[in-house]
């Protein structure tokens, strides 16, 4: 029979773990709310940006800007967005597994991969595997601002324009709902847009541009990329908090189960000890009688 004191101690430690997981769950819930609000707030800009870029790029044609025209893909840049912190279930490991698989496949079938990573988890993962990284952005997710997206987008656009790679792919966790995230892999650019119909369909009049269409496109497209990256970063952050909330919720439930099991065990042990003592007293008394 397990030692009574050992069980009591165990219950105590599980209880304090439960308190921590419970607190973490509540913190994540609050952060999730804020992250969700940020997504909602950023949505109008991203949507309008897409509309405008679509309208201009569709009219300008594919050759108007390097970011629009695809060339033969020899090298690929991969941007992986994970979190800085752990304890969020399969959030990072699922994504990193998918990213790593993509990395291997691309290396075999296409060519070199330039790796850009966001988040400490991705950095540690690839460092352990001795995969060289072109650039790492660590510690930006806690206080995420548009400036971070600008920086990342700037690095990627510069590399693309310098023909260091011919395609940019981004792997991130898409925020579906508070309890569900999905690993997504998207091609970021070259940007593919539907071409506007050549025949003016009546209402579609071309814009007057100030300064020129080419100049507008040249400033518009990098910002479009920024807005996309910003959205993905926000989604990843919201997904992280959602995943952590779920993970901490189940950890708390597991702790509750464990405590009730241990309490049962403890009561049994206590009862057995009492019975044993009683038996000893009774048999002692019996012995004296005889």
């Amino acid at each position: 029979m397990a030692n009574l004191r050992a069980i009591r101690k165990r219950i105590g430690s599980v209880k304090s773990t439960q308190q921590i997981t419970k607190a973490m769950k509540m913190v994540s819930a609050a952060k999730l709310k804020r992250a969700q609000d940020a997504i909602v707030a950023a949505r109008p800009y991203a949507r309008k940006m897409r509309e405008v870029v679509q309208a201009v790029a569709g009219r300008a044609g594919k050759d108007a800007h390097p970011l629009l025209s695809s060339r033969e893909t020899k090298k690929v840049a991969l941007l992986v967005i994970t979190s800085d912190r752990g304890l969020c279930g399969g959030f990072n490991s699922n994504l990193l597994r998918a990213a790593n698989r993509f990395l291997q496949e691309t290396r075999e079938n296409v060519g070199e991969v330039a790796l850009y990573v966001v988040g400490r988890k991705a950095r540690d993962f690839f460092r352990r595997r001795h995969v060289p990284m072109r650039k790492e952005y660590v510690g930006v997710l806690g206080a995420l601002s548009y400036a971070h997206a600008e920086q990342i987008a700037g690095d990627l656009v510069d590399g693309f324009l310098a023909e260091e790679f011919d395609e940019v792919v981004i792997a991130f966790n898409e925020f579906r709902s508070a309890i569900s995230q999905a690993v997504r892999r998207d091609k970021l650019f070259p940007v593919a847009f539907e071409q506007a119909k050549e025949e003016g369909s009546g209402t579609e009049i071309d814009y007057l541009y100030e300064p020129s269409r080419e100049e507008i496109l040249a400033t518009l497209l990098p910002r479009y990329v920024e807005a996309q990256i910003f959205r993905m970063l926000l989604e990843s952050v919201a997904g992280e908090h959602g995943a952590r909330m779920t993970a901490m919720d189940s950890a708390t439930n597991n702790a509750v189960d464990m405590i009730s099991r241990l309490t049962l065990q403890m009561n049994r042990a206590r009862q057995a000890a009492i019975t044993k003592e009683l038996l000893e007293i009774i048999s002692g008394a019996e012995a004296l009688k005889g």
């Binding site: 405008v52 009049i205 100030e210």
Partner: peptide, 17 residues
């Protein structure tokens, strides 16, 4: 980009930095 511009209703399609 090239100075201020005003917009009233029924302005033509226009895209500016």
């Amino acid at each position: 980009y090239e100075g201020e511009f005003g917009v009233l209703p029924e302005h033509t399609q226009y895209l500016a930095i």
